[in-house]
Amino acid sequence: MAKLRRRHRGELTWTENLVFLAPLLFFLILLYGTLFWTIYVSFTDWSTMAPNYQFTGLKWYRFLVQQPKFKVDIINNLKWLILGVFPTVTVAIFLAYFLELTPFPKVEAYIRTLILYPVAMSFIVTGTVWSWMYEPSRGVINTLLRLLGIDANLRFTTNPETATYWLILIFIWQYLGFSVIIVQSSFRTTELQELVEAAIVDGASRLRILFAIILPNIRGGLLILISLLLISTLKVFDIVYIVTFGGPGIATDVLALNMWITTFQQHLVSAGAGLGVIIFVSSFILVIPYTIYAFRKWFE
């Protein structure tokens, strides 16, 4: 009996602890070990193939900030953060609301599958396909336009002025379905459904219901969605690597690509580590609101 009560408070024996925890702890220690290792490397003087752990303070951070590439990266990452996230969320809200309202269940099922299939694809595959769509001379979009008699000759990702925007469009295309199902599932709480029913009885218009009742009540879902999208756009690497590799010139370069080139092609390992730390710190700050929210939910 005493043993039973002890268990109810949730205490485990040594073997039980070992079985349940050892694997996770092992990998967590490795993960955090590599994290701190990277942070340390960023303060050392490692700038060739051979490791050099001589402590040099902020030397390589200063080096990074002085590079013209760094400024381009920051501006591009900001473009990604803003244009990759907010248009996606806005369209997703309207589309999810539309799917909730549509009187044809088959339409809803079809659209959900249709816009969700890119979730199963990698950015490398999507990027390859969209490179072909965007190809300026014989590519799909320009060929289609020519068939319609429009000689637009869009330059897409070969024009340094607008290249990043075309890349962001690929991201939106890929993440729209994902965003819609998250928004849609946050609609489906009983409290919210009751509020909506009541508003319909009161004769509120559909748009009014969306803005006055639904949006304020799905703040949790929106916070999650926005945080997830912010993280994905901050870390964006694959799309840029495969479609433009940062070009033309350095016009579409982003932090993650810069990190990879600096580390693995130029072997300025300390500088690469510094970029890794910058990405880590920014993403850490971006997910703070979400993390607090998630912890509250878990421990409530």
């Binding site: 967590l28 993960l31 955090y32 070990g33 590599t34 994290l35 290792w37 990277t38 942070i39 490397v41 993280i231 901050l234 870390k235 690497f237 993650a256 990190m259 990879w260 580390t263 390992v269 690469g272 580590a273 970029l275 890794g276 730390v277 990405i279 880590f280 993403s283 850490f284 997910v287 993390t291 998630a294 912890f295």
Partner: peptide, 14 residues
């Protein structure tokens, strides 16, 4: 929870 959002860039060198 923090580990979920750790960018791969910050572990790749080690």
């Amino acid at each position: 929870g923090i580990a979920l959002y750790l960018p791969y860039q910050v572990v790749i060198i080690p």
